[in-house]
Design a protein around this nucleic acid. Structure first.
Length: 270
DNA sequence: ACCACAACCTGGCCGC
DNA sequence: TGCGGCCAGGTTGTGG
């Protein structure tokens, strides 16, 4: 599942190859993938525009275009952005094809159709309701403290709430809570100052180490070249039900919290 | 604010 | 071998 580290890996991979290139032609194969515009209008508006820079906001990829607008891409659960050389034709599960200047092509492939693309005036504004970027300097322990104040819900659903914090999904939420030694069901307003400091550090280091490993390929995730990441090998709890905790050896438990599969160590996370 | 649940989707897996 | 049923999860929307 593409979360912040996976989207950031794709952004970095794409940047070196597509920056400054013109989009020659766009082919929408599954119109519902495109939000807010008819497929024909979307295709027509993108053709001829240059990709000026690539950004990321939470799990969204932003392509800033020469017209001044932004193309926002969300990979959903199973979305991939695959960069290829040569004239490509549609393959199974392809939803949108971009043919770029210089014989380069980009496929948006998405088996489960939960991903989407939107062409908007201002991407940052369009995504303004998202919470802070966890890896930016401005995301300090004080900021986290303020955002936690008055929150009575459990930590796990809060970590997944994109309005609370942008970019964390099910994998990195479980990993960050493990690294912080906090139980996923812990009420947010019961954290001490030290708890919050550990959670703050845990969120940032968990995401950073995911990026270092080029993302986690638990199911579907692939980078722009179609390669898996390797962070799944370094996950402490996610997907490891019954396996020994890397810290204390107790078996990792899987429970459902807020309707989501949740992995934790019952000994290290109280 | 918070919670529960449905909807969007489909491959993969289970049990029969 | 096949079929029905359920699960996975990111996000939004609804209703309590």
């Amino acid at each position: 599942m593409p979360e912040l580290p996976e989207v950031e890996t794709i952004r970095r991979d794409l940047a070196s190859l597509v920056l400054g290139r013109r989009i020659d032609e766009v082919e929408v194969l599954w119109p519902r993938t495109v939000q807010g515009l008819e497929a024909e209008a979307f295709q027509a508006r993108l053709a001829g525009q240059r990709i000026e820079w690539l950004g990321r906001r939470g799990k969204h990829l932003l392509l800033h275009l020469s017209s001044g607008g932004d193309l926002i891409i969300h990979l959903g659960m199973s979305g991939r952005l695959l960069l290829e050389q040569g004239h490509i034709s549609p393959e199974k599960y392809d939803r949108v094809l971009f043919r770029l200047e210089g014989g380069l092509a980009l496929r948006f492939r998405d088996v489960r159709k939960l991903g989407w693309l939107a062409l908007v005036k201002d991407g940052e504004e369009f995504l303004a309701s998202l919470g802070p970027e966890p890896l930016e300097e401005g995301f300090t322990a004080e900021v986290l403290t303020k955002r936690l104040a008055g929150r009575k819900g459990q930590l796990k659903p809060l970590m997944l709430n994109q309005r609370f914090l942008a970019g964390v999904g099910n994998i990195y939420a479980d990993e960050a809570l493990f690294a912080a030694g906090l139980h996923p069901c812990r009420r947010a307003d019961t954290l001490s100052e030290e708890d919050i400091a550990r959670l703050h550090w845990a969120i940032r280091s968990t995401l950073a180490s995911g990026i270092e490993d080029r993302g986690s390929s638990v199911n579907d995730y692939r980078d722009a070249e179609g390669r898996p990441g390797r962070h799944q090998e370094n996950l402490a709890v996610y997907g490891r039900e019954g396996e020994p905790c890397p810290r204390c050896g107790a078996p990792i438990q899987r429970i459902v919290v807020g309707g989501r599969g949740t992995h934790f160590c019952p000994n290290c996370q109280r």
